[in-house]
Structure formats: C-alpha cells, structure tokens
Design a protein around this nucleic acid. Structure first.
Lengths: 201, 201
DNA sequence: AAAAGTATTAACCAAATGGTTAAACCAATT
DNA sequence: AATTGGTTTAACCATTTGGTTAATACTTTT
C-alpha cells in the first residue's frame, strides 16, 4: 500500500480515485471508498471535484491518453514497418506491465452506453500511421501482403488480451503472480517473432 | 426487440436478466430494469430467484460454459495441430458473432475481486489438450518450435479482443455496424493464415 | 364446489449512496 | 488582534435500490 499522506489533498484524491475507479469501474466504485483511501471526508471529494461523474471524467482523461500510445517517438527513427511494430510491442508491454488494469478500465468505460462521449477522448492517430507505413514497405516488397487493419487489431489483441484475462490464464495454467509476470516479460520476444513470421516475405 | 411475451414467467426473467446483465454488468444492472424488460413485477424476480446474486449466478453459469468451448468435436477428427487451431478459430468466431458481449461479461465477472468463486466455474480442459496436440505434432516436425502457452493466449486474444474493443475499432477506422461485421467475418480467414505462417515449418 | 397450493401484485422497508449545508478551523493579510 | 479567504468536518437529505410482506388472483386437487 502506497503512503499518500505526504501529498496535497487534491493529489491524494486523484491517487485514491484512480485506484478505486480502475479496480472497480464506475458503477462498482463508491465515493466513500475513495474518501477513505484518500484519508479525508467524503464532502472534500465534492469540494474539489463537483460530482462522481466529474471526478471519474478527470481520471479517464488522464488514463485514456495512455491507451493508444504516442508513436511519434517510434516513427522518428527511420525504420521498417516490421521494426516499427516490434518496437511498438516492446513499448506497449512496458506500459501494460506498469498499468495492468488500464485495458479493462478503458474498454469498460467505452462500452458503457451511458457515456458515448468518452469514446471521443481516445487518441486514434496511431492506426492511420501504421497503415501508411505498411503500404510504403509493401511497395518496396519489404513485407508480405496482408490486411493491415486486421493485422493491427491482431497485434493489439495479442498485447492487451492477457492482461484482461489474467485471472483465467493464471487459473488455466496453474500460475502464481510471479510466474504470470515472467510469462508477460517473455511474451515480448515471442510476439516479435510472430510479427516477423507473418510479415517477412 | 425480441417479443418475450409468449414464454413462461421464469423463461422471460432469464431472457431479460441475460440481456441486462450482459450489457450492464453486475454493478450496472438494476432488478427493476430486469423486471420491466420481463414485463413483470419486481417481486417476481425474488420469488423465482431469491436474490440478485443468485439470479446473476444463474446467468453466469449458463454463459460461462460457452466461453471456453468444448473441443471434443474438434479433436474427434484426426487432424493436425494447425488444422485444429484453424477449426477452433472458425467455430469460436461463430460463437462470438452470435454472442458479441460474452467476452466482456465473462472477463469482468472474473476480474471482480468480490466473487473469486466465479473463476472456478469456467471450463479449462481446452488449453491442456491444445498443448498436448502441439507437442505431438512438434515431435513429428509438423509444426515450428514456439511456446504453445504463448501461442494459445495469442490466438484467444486475436479472436476475442476485437469484440471487446468494438466501439474503439469502429471509431478508429470510421466503420458502421455492417462494415464491422464484415470485417469480423473476413477475419476468420486472415487469422487462419497467420496461424499457418507462424506454425508451418 | 371447497380446499389447497401456486403465481402475482401493490405497498412497504431498511440500507446504501451521491450530494448538500452550516459551522468550525486554519493560514495569511491588514 | 481582527478580518478574510480557502479548507475541512459532522450532520443531514433525498433518492435509489435490493429485498420483504400481506393480500389477491389463478390453477389444480379433492
């Protein structure tokens, strides 16, 4: 348990709210729970953030930016599509290992029919840039012909799915937490190999 | 909207509960909402199923069996590991297209820390049988050497992920519902190709 | 037809929950 | 020291929500 006593009240609320919302989702979260975790009175939550909705929106805004990561850094170096994807997998796994609840949080929020506007907040540039780079390399015969849309969805799925299905995976393969983490670390290289096997002409 | 007026009260409750629980999750669902959809009094829900918990458990029991599908049928025919996986993808997509909310429902339930027992209810034989078959084919040099555990997780992820990320995918690639469904249908062949490219020696 | 069992309803209840208010507290300013 | 502005608290409020109850309607048995 992190000690959040040192921070300012507003920071403590944000840290507590992030913990609770990420773990329990909007509907499963209780303002009292957040207040307790922040070590403050429930009224303070409304003093700093007017309502549960507004507080949630604040957390979502912070977290949603992480989900489709900025790939400017990846694109900067003049690399092939295969290298680009492999690089993406590496960076994305770092993020997911640091934020294992992020996928479920984002996907649940975005699937909530009561909050269609939240869908707009996610950054979507990434997919187009991937597709562009793919077509460029295809013209130069540096990659096999596949459907880039399907391919990108596949890569995302292979990265994200295990973090959402973690309890099932642990159970199915009789793993403890440490073993699971080891598997996730090893997964990066495995996926990079798959990418090569699928794309290399 | 399906007309459920013809069915018995108990059946109508189950149909309504399935709709609501699958869409809104346990915490997001309201007993009143289920009662309204079933066209009955709220007290009837408690008359037939003692509590919200029990009703939810009933629905989960029915749906959880679908998630890790029986592969006896697939294993019966004496086929290679590659064919087995390809066959699995085909059958699994049929299921997912018919039950697009199933993955999110199961994964959310199983990630709920308040209900650790629900994790036990899922069928897990499938993974072991896949691994066995893989090792058999590996010995006969019919498949490349990969990590079967990582591979199975990858296949599951590639199948399941797009159904959970559907709102984001539609938004990112500016698709409507019909286009999305077409992409999902086409996805089967694409994934079967990936499997060959990864596994064929 | 009477009795007995089953299904259904309206009204009600208690707890939980998001949110408000008015007073108290505290730090800086004058 | 008094004023002022922001911060914090305890108590309170209204609504929602899962669940109950007692009476009523409907079916089946005798």
């Amino acid at each position: 348990m992190i000690d959040i006593k040192e921070e300012s009240t507003e920071e403590r609320i944000l840290i507590a709210a992030e913990m609770v919302f990420m773990r329990d989702g909007y509907n499963g979260s209780r303002m009292q729970d957040i207040a307790d975790k922040a070590g403050i009175n429930k009224a303070m939550l409304h003093y700093y953030f007017r309502s549960k909705d507004k507080l949630f929106e604040h957390i979502f805004d912070l977290k949603s930016k992480l989900f489709s990561p900025k790939i400017e850094g990846l694109l900067a170096e003049n690399q092939s599509f295969i290298e680009l994807i492999q690089n993406f997998i590496e960076k994305y796994f770092e993020l997911l290992i640091a934020n294992p609840f992020l996928p479920l949080f984002i996907i649940n929020t975005v699937n909530n029919p009561n909050r269609p506007d939240f869908l707009e907040k996610l950054p979507y540039q990434l997919n187009r840039k991937f597709a562009e780079k793919y077509l460029e390399d295809l013209a130069n015969r540096k990659v096999k012909q596949i459907n880039p849309l399907q391919f990108i969805i596949s890569v995302m799925g292979m990265c994200i799915f295990p973090f959402m299905a973690k309890p099932m995976i642990k159970k199915a393969f009789e793993m403890d937490e440490v073993q699971f983490e080891k598997i996730m670390e090893a997964r990066v290289e495995e996926l990079k190999n798959y990418v090569e096997m699928i794309l290399k002409p």
